[in-house]
Amino acid sequence: MMKSVPMLLAILLVPAFAVAQNRVQPELMEVPEIRSSWDDLTEGIATKEDWIARREVLKRRYLDLLGDQHKPEKPPLDLIVHEDVVVDGLYRRQWISYAVEADERAHAYLGTPLELDGKAPAIVALHGTYQHGSKRAAGLIDNPDKAYLDHLCRRGYVVIAPEHFVSGERTPAAGPYDTAAFYEKHPQWTAVGKFTYEHSIAIDVLQSLPQVDPQRIGALGHSLGGHGTFFLAAYDDRIQASACNCGASFFRHNPNVEGWGRNRWYIYFKPIREGLLKGELPPIDFHEIIALIAPRAFLDVSGLNDGHIPTQKQRLLMLMKIMDVYELNGVPENLGFYVHGRKHSVAHESRQLIYGWMDAHLKPAEATQTHLVVPAAEE
């Protein structure tokens, strides 16, 4: 009697299934757990509450690293407009200044779209190590890839591009980015503490403007402005979305770590130099600083071949561990990273990703919503 085709298939497949069940999986088909030195970020952390407690410890360490306890008392803004022009009939660009210390004023370009439908999102755009950095950020000089104020005003953002405190109008007598005079005035503070504090005051400026939605403020930057972005977002919870482009390496796994506490020119953290020379790293590293941004949105864009490649590869492990913190907070969608091979650049695709990230996190949902095509007969 002929067996049915389904029955024959069942008989034939049973031995094969049994063999498959008993087969030892090759090692390459297994998924090993990735372990790295960055795992200390969440060591002993099992819940969101555990993380909140750890975060308080890390925030204190971060403020100590900045020397935040040595910052001066914040003066009234005393905002002054020095120049006012309209660009292409699309936005107003103003050259402004405001007080950051009792005897110091910061300068910045401020851009405001001419046609706004209600209060607009705003962005602090930070330039890199360039003598006339804010002019470049405004699109007036040098590389237009870094003209963030111009690009973003055309996308509907109010933008402030502050000038770094040792460049432009405040270039020291010793030359651009020389911090010797700063440390003579503030021997216990740090250059990173100084620029982070000033960038926080730039947020004050934005929040003082009637055209800005104070709850929708972001920050972005390249190079010095890139790590300045996450230093700011970790420092000031008013930053709701941030993006770092090519923002330097960290303390650990960095053969050039002494550069963070060098004894000449631009000295980031002068107080840590003695420890670095002894091989001692600070009690907080960059994965812990960036994790302070969670649950707010953060995007890291970096070149795998930007500098020391083995160190940059560690950046990927670092970011994967930071993702664990965002998972704990229930918002994994608020962390992103993109790694490319374009070295120290902010190329077209990087800019589009960064600007899209800002749109997704600072604009209303309908601004990034897609739609199906409606056939003409149904219109």
Score class of each variant (00 low, 15 high):
V124E: 05
P72D: 06
K48V: 08
Y109W: 14
I123H: 15
Q131V: 13
D39K: 04
A147W: 00
L66V: 02
L66P: 00
R155E: 13
D68G: 13
G156E: 11
P144I: 13
L114C: 01
G128A: 05
Y91T: 07
L114K: 06
P72M: 07
E43P: 02
D103P: 01
A102N: 08
A161R: 01
E56A: 11
A137V: 14
L116W: 13
A108L: 00
I80N: 09
H164M: 14
H107Q: 12
V87E: 08
K135S: 14
R61D: 05
Y130W: 10
L63T: 00
H127K: 08
L66D: 01
L66K: 03
L126D: 09
K59E: 08
H82A: 06
V159R: 00
C153Q: 07
V57E: 08
H82Q: 02
E83R: 15
D88H: 13
L63R: 14
I52M: 10
L152D: 04
Y130F: 13
D150W: 08
A147N: 07
L41R: 01
L63V: 09
Y62R: 15
Y157V: 10
V100Y: 00
V57D: 14
D150I: 11
R55M: 01
G44Q: 00
R54P: 00
R61A: 12
T112E: 10
L90H: 15
G111M: 14
D103H: 04
V57L: 14
A108F: 06
P76T: 04
L58F: 09
V57W: 09
L152S: 04
D40H: 09
I160N: 07
V81C: 04
R155Y: 13
V100G: 07
L79Q: 11
E56G: 05
Y109I: 07
L77Q: 10
S134M: 11
I96E: 04
H164N: 05
